[in-house]
Amino acid sequence: MSITYINDLRNGLRELLKSDKTVYLIGEDIGDPYGGAFKVTKGLSLEYPNNIIQTPMSEQGFTGMGIGMALNGLKPIVEIMFGDFITLTIDQIINHLAKFYEVYQIDISFVLRTPSGGFRGYGPTHSQSLERLFFGIPGITVIAPSIINSPGKMITKSVYCNRPIIFIENKLDYSKVLLPTNKLINDICFINPIDSVQNFPMHKITIPEMQPEATIITYGGMVPACMKVQEELLMEEEISTEIITISNLTDIDFTSLLNSIESRKVITIEESWEKFGWGSYITSKLTQSKPFEHTSNIGAKNCYIPAAKELEDYVLPTTKTIYKRILEEIK
């Protein structure tokens, strides 16, 4: 049965609220009738009014408030309306939450969820993928589902893993239908979980019976774009690629990742800036273990995310630019 990403996520939240009275949703405009800026929490405040805390516009304050609730055994899920606004929470997350977990040795259930990404013409302060700000900060785990993970299941896992989680959604994914695993998709590819990875899965998207010429590693909102590129490369150039999607962006199982790469060329793709990016860390770690014929990192151009469609498409990695780059690099 097909379900959209947003409905799956909302179902996950609803199930959490239903089964666990210590779960609280906290954030701006998350109550009904509005139901959140992207409508993720729509309806939930009518069903569970005591566990939805609608806040004033005080991101630093209510993020810290959530951390305090978590210290006393509650399970807050804090929504930050746009991923761009996580800058306001950073002191509470890095200097408080992460330190309580690691320095004070406190198990803590705290999830901050936020929608990341552009391609919607929202302009420079409403289009960024700022999860990068938390990469490499000890004590913080960054999780990003995509259309091939159930965001509902992943938010549940995040709540019960007893450590600080930043949960990154992608605005473009909300309306998309989740894809099934172990089933031929569009007569082209199969999606399979990489079995050895615990808890937050990695998946591999492969074209059956063809040796991949390149391996694309990506996460979150870039997965649909990469699948489109995979399809076009096959149809137009008869080039086979494999895609590996990662959902735990910061605690990566590099052994499993290495073992599942079947080509000699690795290309990472992320929506955020390529400069000092997530992908360059991945390829750097991979090449320290094993030589590859080719590695490269694709991401946004090194400038702000502009609003006009032509400008935004010029800066962000679109299917067109990804296709072109991959073709150039593996030919």
Partner: peptide, 10 residues
């Protein structure tokens, strides 16, 4: 201080 408020709310 925000954390103290959260503790109090809890």
């Amino acid at each position: 201080i925000p954390i103290a408020c959260g503790l109090a709310l809890s």
